[in-house]
Design a protein around this nucleic acid. Structure first.
Lengths: 213, 213
DNA sequence: ATTGCCGTCGACAGGGTGTTGACGCACGTC
DNA sequence: GACGTGCGTCAACACCCTGTCGACGGCAAT
């Protein structure tokens, strides 16, 4: 789960050229306002005007910094993803050592990072349907999990410790889909959710049965 | 998965009183236009005016039949859910007989019914974030799957054929989350998706490992 | 001082939603 | 066969929100 530097930065040209002026503070102000507002109301109920006023600028000026409301959210998500990457550290490369403990730690950290930005995650869940950029970035995050799981499955199969079963990637996708949905339910409060403290245990149980049986 | 009669009908008062006139045709025309249009463009890109014109009425008249664009989609989803219920038949009650075959058949039928209305499912996936009614109806559908899985787990545990593991309901939720996500990917084309013909096999494999191991 | 560009905003255009008020037309009623 | 009653219908209106255009002030380099 290390290094991504995705979307937003390059995908959506920001408008401001080489910025060394105080313009950067404004951008941060907008971002800050957005996350603060998102803790109070839904993304849909926040207008560009709200964001602009919150940052102490007018609506047209907002467009100088971001091309749209969605771009703000995308940047916010980008920041969270980076944070998660940093938190995950090199744990991924040391999975083989002690699978159960490592997986648990990895999931735990992911949980902690994203749990610290519920408002952002919830907003992303909300616009996921309509915003392809958000969907793509989220898909990229998930893809890394899928690959990690796939690698674990293959390693296990090479060791001869697990039966063949379905193609490793398909199985990995299915297993990760479980995470994804459960995380959504947990972070965005969307759908039936298991008691939070038990989430990791349940996920692990199913994983281990499917991968390491 | 039998009988639901949820939302839409009662939750959203339609506006027309006791209708025996041709008003019902209009309602059907709107519904038909909606599903047809959804096969061409995204829900968001369809305006109420499009729906109205497609049904041969004016925009204000549309409001006579439905309180909003979302209500139309909800009714559409309602119809699909009813169809799925009918298709599932009594299969649910006969799960114990031959779990693997029954589960497979159940999942297959679900797949077939919803696959026949991809446009509607995709639209629901799109507004799921913003529309609580759609979310609720979908959650109700999923809840029935969760309960079925939970029952299977408990039956299996009572038989002493499977180890204790996590609480049956939590496990059921986790397993069903997998279905849900995979279905979304398959029907709505959102997210990484395994080859369609293999979906059922992969799901079943993980299930069986977790439930019947 | 002049030029140029960054940052800023007032004002406009456009497109969508939901509501209001009035108008016909098909009834059942006496 | 006039007469309400209420369904079905729509033109027009009031809003709200988004995105763009043109103008204007100021700091920086020339």
């Amino acid at each position: 789960m290390t290094s991504s530097r995705t979307a937003a930065g390059t995908a959506t040209p920001r408008g401001r050229r080489a910025g060394r002026t105080s313009g950067d503070e404004r951008e941060q102000a907008i971002l800050g306002t957005a996350e603060r507002l998102l803790e109070q109301r839904a993304f849909t109920d926040i207008s560009i005007d709200d964001l602009a006023r919150g940052a102490g600028i007018s609506r047209p000026t907002f467009y100088f910094y971001f091309p749209s409301k969605d771009a703000v959210l995308l940047t916010l998500l980008d920041r969270v993803v980076e944070e998660a990457d940093a938190d995950a550290g090199d744990l991924l490369d040391r999975l083989a050592e002690d699978p159960r403990a490592r997986w648990r730690e990895l999931i735990d950290r992911f949980h902690r990072t994203f749990g610290g930005h519920r408002a952002v995650v919830a907003a992303c869940a909300q616009v996921r349907g309509t915003n392809a950029e958000v969907r793509r970035l989220w898909a990229a995050v998930m893809e890394r999990w899928v690959q990690a799981i796939e690698a674990a499955i293959e390693a296990e199969r090479r060791r001869g410790a697990a039966p063949a079963g379905p193609p490793a990637r398909d199985l990995a996708i299915a297993l990760n889909s479980m995470n994804e949905r459960v995380w959504y339910a947990t972070f965005a409060g969307d759908g039936p959710s298991v008691a939070e403290r038990d989430v990791v245990d349940v996920l692990l149980d199913v994983w281990l049965a499917a991968i390491y049986r």
